[in-house]
Each structure stands twice: as C-alpha cells, then as structure tokens.
Write a protein that binds this DNA or RNA. Structure first.
Length: 105
DNA sequence: CTCGTGACTCCCG
DNA sequence: TCGGGAGCCACGA
C-alpha cells in the first residue's frame, strides 16, 4: 500500500452505497485528515481508473459537482441520476437527504 | 530523485 | 458579503 491515508480513502469510497454521496472533506476526515480533501480528489481521480472506484459519488462541500461542463460534469451527473440522486435547479444535491452517513457504518 | 499541479476546504480580515 | 491565503500530500512528467 502506498500509505495508510490513501488506503483508507480507497476503502471508504468503495463503501459508499449507490444512491448516496460523500464529500471530499468528509472522506478526508474519516481517513484521518480533514485538511487533505485535495488528496482525496487526486487519489480518486487517479485510482478510479485502476481500482474502478465509484468516484462519481463524491462531490464537493456544496453538494455540487466540481467538474466543469465538458470535463465530465454531465457524465458524473447522469451516473448519479441513474442511482436516484436528484439535483435541484442549481444543479446541487440535497446533502441532508443524500449524504452518506459514514458515522453509522 | 525533484518539482509543479490540483475532482477541496476552512479561516480571517 | 466576499476575496485571498494556507494547509494537506499523491501522482505524473
């Protein structure tokens, strides 16, 4: 394993159930560093293609997809919608409703 | 091996 | 209300 943090991140992401989402900050916090949200994003980006992680279930603190239009935004959104996640008129997800309650795991 | 970059977030003026 | 700086560190070139 590369590091404990990286390993935890991958494990956590793989446990997010379909229809639920998590935020970078939340994953980082559970993995041990609430300040390493960026690393979570990076690990996700590079690892998803190697470990087939459900990267699309991770969004930013606003419940909004961080990718720009044309850079994967529509793709991620469609994947989430297929799992039942609804977006409001601002293209944001209702965190109170869809956020993965990791603390109950 | 070194270096730049970044799917983020919080804090402070 | 809003902008900018700092912290974190894996990964690819």
């Amino acid at each position: 394993m590369a590091s404990e943090f990286t390993d935890r991140v991958r494990t956590i992401i793989s446990r997010i159930p379909a229809g639920k989402i998590a935020t970078y900050g939340l994953v980082a916090e559970i993995a041990g560093n609430h300040l390493a949200a960026r690393q979570v994003a990076r690990i996700l980006h590079s690892s998803s293609r190697k470990y087939q992680l459900p990267w699309h279930r991770v969004v930013n603190r606003m419940g909004r997809i961080s990718l720009g239009r044309g850079a994967g935004y529509e793709f991620q959104k469609s994947l989430l919608e297929e799992e039942g996640v609804k977006f409001d008129s601002y293209d944001q997800i209702d965190l109170d409703r869809y956020l993965w309650l990791a603390e109950l795991d």
